[in-house]
Amino acid sequence: MSRLNAFLALVLIGCALAVVNAQHRARMAFVELERLKHEARALDEQWGQLRLEQSTWANHARVEVLARTQLGLITPSFDRIRIETLPPAP
């Protein structure tokens, strides 16, 4: 009888320590989760800012000015466009 009791006591202590350990690990995991959520949000915000930046660079007016001045591109006037009609594919 007393042997069984001693054994159960040991099991109990073991369980108690396991609970403590599990609780600790759960908290660590939770802290990590919070950190990652925070990071996700920060990345999301950064993405928004990058989209803003991208749209500033890709602004139509800016692209047009660059195309005209730096690359020397022009829109052909109507009388300089020739429309070719391709014969239907065989």
Binding site: R68, Q70, G72, R80
Partner: peptide, 13 residues
């Protein structure tokens, strides 16, 4: 219509 294309002067860039 298609007219003779005028000479295009490329802006310096």
């Amino acid at each position: 219509r298609l007219t003779e294309s005028p000479v295009i002067v490329r802006p310096r860039g």
